[in-house]
């Protein structure tokens, strides 16, 4: 079964230096219940592509189909309603600083019109899912980076979505916490059968959890493969570059630039 289908989506931004083709005619199928990685360098259009799935960015052309429904054909209000079935987490967590962990998790339920008492029960349950029931009265400022991301995961799961979009979820946490976050994502995927789309610039993240990965280069999908297929040899230059994924110091030339492979 196909969970998400992108049919020739394109998104162009107007910039002072001319039009920027952030996403250029991308066709993509995400299998239901899978973890699908999207990898590429900074500015490859990964985050824009992810935002096309829940229509936070509207594509200029092409169709977005989620769970068999064409979102691009829906009204503004119908799209807002459909977003309750699509959770999202972010690189910088994006929790409300002035709300406790519990209230952050309860917020999407309040928006969905769930009764107050039920909101609380569900929120507590979700905090238990991410192993943080004891932190429910803590404000985000009192949590570590990994804990913030786990609260964000709990919040994304509040309305029982079928799909979870992850925008660089491990890019601002330390390597050990990275493992914890990815462990929870894998667990959620297995336990609830939630389809996950995960944007990253690190091949190690893809290898750890993704069933399939799509390589994005300057807005185009250039290659798709199973990261744990050891017989696979990357075809595109960008994929092999990312696969090496070690830091390469370039000799400082006239423009004194330092290139960091697979990093930002």
């Amino acid at each position: 079964m196909v969970g998400i289908e992108l049919r020739g989506v394109t998104k162009t931004f107007d910039t002072p230096t001319g039009p920027l083709h952030a996403v250029n005619d991308v066709w993509l199928c995400v299998e239901e219940g899978s973890i699908h990685g999207i990898i590429g360098l900074s500015g490859a259009g990964k985050s824009t592509l992810l935002r096309l799935i829940n229509l936070i960015e509207r594509p200029d052309s092409g169709e977005v189909v989620v769970d068999g429904r064409e979102l691009t054909g829906l009204s503004e209000e119908e799209v807002r309603h459909a977003r309750r079935g699509i959770g999202m987490i972010f690189q910088h967590f994006n929790l409300l600083a002035n709300r406790t962990a519990l209230d952050n998790v309860a917020l999407p339920l309040a928006i969905a019109g769930v009764a107050k008492r039920e909101q609380r029960q569900i929120a507590i349950d979700r905090l238990e899912t991410v192993g943080l029931p004891h932190k429910r009265d803590a404000y985000p400022a009192k949590l570590s980076g990994g804990e913030k991301q786990r609260v964000a995961i709990a919040r994304a799961l509040a309305t029982q979505p079928r799909i979870l979009l992850c925008d660089e979820p491990t890019s601002s946490v330390d390597p050990q916490t990275k493992g914890t976050i990815l462990g929870y994502l894998r667990e959620i995927n297995r336990r609830f059968g939630i389809t996950i789309v995960l944007v990253t610039h690190e091949m190690s993240v893809v290898r750890a959890v993704c069933d399939v990965v799509t390589v994005l280069d300057r807005g185009r999908s250039v290659e798709q493969f199973a990261p744990n297929d050891h017989l696979h040899r990357p075809r595109s230059a960008i994929a092999s570059f990312l696969a090496r994924s070690e830091i390469v110091l370039e000799p400082l030339g006239d423009d004194a630039s330092v290139a960091v492979a697979g990093g930002e």
């Binding site: 807002r80 309750r84 309040a110």
Partner: peptide, 22 residues
């Protein structure tokens, strides 16, 4: 923070809800 507003949008908030809840 722009990101928190985006999180609200991803939850399916209307403009009015973004103003009051975020």
């Amino acid at each position: 923070d722009r990101g928190v507003i985006e999180a609200g949008q991803a939850m399916g908030m209307s403009r009015k809800q973004l103003v009051w809840h975020i």
